[in-house]
């Protein structure tokens, strides 16, 4: 059992990293990563929704008829998204304004529906919670890396602290999002390729 848990953690963070490996949730990954803070905000909001929807769906999985499975999941996810949206509006107003449109759009983040369908509907509540948490952390981590790279290169700052006058504005503009994510994805593929090769040699 602990093995399975360890596997869930590893897969969420690395092997099946939602952004770099599975290319899920690309819209928020590209749109909200103009700075490290925004990236973390989006990542945490998504993680909250993912954990809650995973838990609830794993609890009610037996009550839902097969035919309306997907719509039922969507309603559950949409409710949690609206909840997060309203809470952020009330309590972290500034961040809420910046993330804007992309908070309600967490509903259609394929990552969440994907985990509900492929994991939460088949596993126990405890495992579903763990899966949601670590998939969410993998997502947040990826967004954070992308957001940091874009903020450092594009605005010469990190977490809003200015340290450099060299600003490659292209990186905070839309094209830079694609370029930065493309280069990071290539880097990850390169590294994981090297790693798996060397581990094969050892065997």
């Amino acid at each position: 059992m602990t093995d399975k848990r360890r596997m869930i953690i590893r897969q969420g963070l690395f092997e099946q990293n939602p952004v770099f490996m599975q290319a899920l949730g690309m819209c928020p990954a590209l749109a909200t990563t103009t700075s490290a803070v925004n990236a973390i905000g989006m990542g945490v909001a998504t993680t909250c929704v993912l954990v809650m929807s995973n838990v609830v769906i794993s609890i009610i999985k037996k009550l839902i008829p097969e035919k309306v499975r997907i719509p039922a999941y969507i309603v559950v996810i949409a409710s949690f998204v609206t909840m997060i949206d309203m809470l952020m509006h009330g309590f972290i107003y500034e961040l809420w304004k910046t993330l804007g449109l992309f908070i309600p759009l967490i509903v259609v983040n394929c990552l969440i529906l994907g985990r509900a369908e492929s994991f939460a509907s088949k596993n126990s509540t405890g495992l579903a919670f763990l899966d949601g948490l670590f998939m969410g952390m993998g997502f947040t981590g990826a967004l954070f890396i992308l957001g940091s790279v874009r903020e450092i290169l594009g605005n010469g700052s990190f977490f809003g602290m200015q340290f450099s006058e060299v600003k490659l504005f292209a990186f905070v503009l839309p094209p830079g999002a694609y370029l930065a994510l493309g280069l990071l994805a290539a880097f990850f593929t390169f590294v994981s390729g090297k790693l798996s090769k060397s581990s094969k040699k050892k065997d």
Binding site: A23, A170, L173, P174, P175, G176, A177, Y178, L179, L181, G182, L183, A185, A186, F187, T189, F190, G193
Partner: peptide
């Protein structure tokens, strides 16, 4: 090798996005 698939597609999309600017 590393640019095949997703990475290459993203970089291409970046260039396309630049031209749309």
């Amino acid at each position: 090798e590393s640019f095949k698939g997703l990475a290459g597609a993203l970089v291409t999309a970046g260039l396309l996005s630049m031209s749309f600017m």
